[in-house]
Design a protein around this nucleic acid. Structure first.
Lengths: 255, 255
DNA sequence: TAGTGGTCTAGACCACGGA
DNA sequence: CCGTGGTCTAGACCACTAT
């Protein structure tokens, strides 16, 4: 059963997307929404907070809330998992394991994932039949057996791990930058060496904060972009200078 | 005067960063925090919601909150403005206008920024003395005069517009991908043509939803990365497939 | 000045997790 | 089972915007 505030949020979101509340217009006041839905003002505030977090509406003290955009918002799962994202977007997609092996964790990996024998997997993903993504993933020792049990063409590893072991990836940290394609990247993606790739490095943990995987994903330029909406008072994304003194090493496989 | 919940949030954040609540440990219960700060539970919940939005803590119904990370969180202004970001990070930075001209808005720009004569500005930004960023910005007609009044080496346009005209950029939409350096990019950044750049396209609006500017910013690879923390139930960032049918045009200047 | 959102309180009940 | 966070209510006062 969905919460009251979610129903109200859904109602407002639908109004925004349908054009009942066009971009640039004002939302009804909290008092009015409360009356209309027979809910307390606090509940209404929870609802509009959801929309504000999605970047659909803005607010200032003393003035009505304003509609900022009508984009559909996507879920954590869709950022975390290529398959879940592609499926939600109605894309045709596929994937194949190219290489897979166990090896001892490096010291950096021990710090991120815990020690022991990690599992290193190289996957190639396609979108609309075209190769668009090279995924180099390192799984923590404790999930390695479950991953090894999966077929090489498993569509969604995240989904499979949930189905097989009840494993939920709940938190992620992502670092996004651009890199030149290495020889292996170039071969797999069908681009020239040195051509631009969009890189997403991520580390994922469970609800309890237990590290699951760490991945280096490289998208062919022009295939995928990341989109963020933000506002004063909300800090979803952060820019980082790269420390040129630190070894950029951390290479997984050859690339 | 800071709000009560912000003081509580600051207190908790400090505890996390200082190590009093190490990564992986549990936060005190809401009831305990309420008692400790002499506040109502609702106020405490507002405080921990702030930390959750920053990605520092996670939560599950029935279990204590868990500390996920200890990274310093940055503000909207730091994502929006290169100068404010660089200053906050303690970096040495600079900037220079390379080219500036008025021209009629294209149809796409009219839709995004409103019509009239827009102002197109090409800037080169440096970090630690190195050129790292080429900014191609189009300002809406209504802000163009204020921008034209600024000196060519103005450090922070955002700050200057606020000081001069009380203009506040409150909302932003950002699209992040990778592109190959064009001839002009390569010359300005001192890289080879075709080498990878991290591109951030953004559109900014005021509190009222009035469009201010639209920009195409390109970072030299290896100089800057974007970082996101997210969790189930929070949707700061979204991945988008790029529509290959649409003209990738929208070129501003030669690039 | 009237309306609006921002903050805060003091309760209540429920769903879930862990012992 | 108890403790925890998730939801919800019904009020209150304040700061700010718009008129």
């Amino acid at each position: 059963m969905a919460a009251r505030y979610e129903l109200i949020a859904d109602d407002l979101r639908e109004g925004i997307i349908s054009g009942a509340y066009p971009v640039g217009s004002q939302l009804p006041s909290e008092a009015e929404l409360a009356r209309r839905h027979g809910a307390a003002r606090g509940t209404v505030r929870q609802a509009v907070a959801v929309l504000a977090a999605e970047g659909l509406v803005g607010s200032r003290q003393g003035a009505r809330r304003i509609v900022l955009g009508a984009a559909r918002s996507q879920s954590f799962a869709e950022l975390h998992s290529f398959a879940q994202w592609a499926r939600a977007g109605g894309h045709r997609f596929g994937g194949q394991v190219i290489e897979q092996r166990r090896r001892p964790a490096s010291s950096a990996e021990s710090a991120r994932l815990g020690g022991g024998e990690v599992l290193e997997v190289l996957r190639l993903r396609t979108l609309e039949g075209e190769p668009v993504l090279v995924e180099r993933t390192v799984y923590a020792a404790w999930v390695a057996p479950a991953v090894e049990a999966l077929p090489g063409d498993c569509e969604s590893v995240t989904q499979a791990l949930y189905d097989a072991a009840g494993l939920v990836c709940a938190y992620g940290e992502h670092l996004i930058d651009a890199v030149a394609a290495g020889a292996q990247d170039a071969r797999l993606l069908g681009v020239r060496r040195g051509s631009p790739l969009l890189r997403q490095r991520r580390t994922t943990t469970t609800h309890e904060g237990r590290p699951v995987e760490s991945s280096d994903d490289r998208y062919r330029a022009g295939s995928v972009a990341f989109s963020i909406r933000n506002s004063i008072g909300a800090n979803p994304l952060v820019r980082q200078a790269i420390d040129l003194r630190s070894a950029s090493g951390e290479h997984m496989f050859e690339s």
